[in-house]
Design a protein around this nucleic acid. Structure first.
Length: 215
DNA sequence: TAGGCCATCTGGTCCT
DNA sequence: AGGACCAGATGGCCTA
């Protein structure tokens, strides 16, 4: 059972603003609708919910069934329906957004070095590992260029294309120390970190991974 | 059983 | 106005 601030807050304020038969609410007293209540749809829209009960109890007996009152109540119902529809649509969008985020994370997991069969990285581990992986590759490029600095073809480009063909387009720029064109590939955390922070950037499951141990 | 991870809902804020 | 993004809350599931 999810308890949360009642969605009726806005609706009630709108209802009270348009309804001549609603509670004569004082601004100095919190509306009963401000109390927490269940978010279950049935309960949310149930006539027995505390909020509506309060509203109904507070209605002026004489005006309760007047045509004007019925109209305003119908309008309130319409407002509720509209708001509920908007909320449902927003929930669907948010769900899809998170699904897309998860798909992206899965894609990221796929390009990371292979792992033991049942070792699926958590979200945070995936991000940390990816960060570390990028740093390690950039270090590899830097060292490779240092070793083959005099060759016309950047050794790093060959190395990357051989080892990580799917990544090579992103790494096709020169990585020579004198070039700033790849500054974006210079993550600072692992490279400049202490051994403690290196530990931090290595997912616990991966500390025995050959790639990670090669660092 | 506590803690970690995750999915989902929700309301607020920003952007188009 | 509506959508995207974000962070907090909550409950379910799993594992040590």
């Amino acid at each position: 059972m999810v308890l949360l601030k009642c969605e009726y807050r806005d609706e009630v304020s709108e209802l009270t603003s348009v309804s001549p038969c609603s509670v004569s609410s004082s601004s100095s007293h919190p509306s009963p609708a401000m109390q927490t209540c269940s978010s279950d749809d049935e309960q949310l829209h149930s006539p027995t919910s505390p909020t509506l009960t309060h509203l109904q109890q507070g209605r002026d007996q004489g005006e309760e069934n007047s045509p004007r009152c019925r109209r305003s109540r119908a309008r309130g119902d319409t407002v509720l329906k509209i708001k509920k529809t908007r909320r449902v649509k927003a929930n669907n969008r948010e769900r899809n957004r998170m699904h897309h985020l998860n798909y992206a994370l899965d894609s990221l997991r796929e390009v990371l070095p292979s792992l033991p069969e049942d070792a699926k990285l958590t979200k945070i581990e995936t991000l940390r590992f990816a960060h570390n992986y990028i740093w390690a590759l950039s270090e590899t490029l830097r060292l490779a260029d240092q070793l083959h600095g005099s060759t016309s073809t950047p050794a790093a480009a060959i190395l990357v294309q051989d080892s990580y063909p799917s990544l090579s387009p992103s790494w096709s720029c020169s990585s020579s120390p004198s070039s700033n064109s790849c500054d974006s590939f210079s993550p600072t955390s692992p490279a400049s970190s202490t051994s403690d922070s290196i530990e931090y950037w290595q997912p616990s499951e991966l500390r025995l991974n050959p790639f990670m141990s090669a660092l």
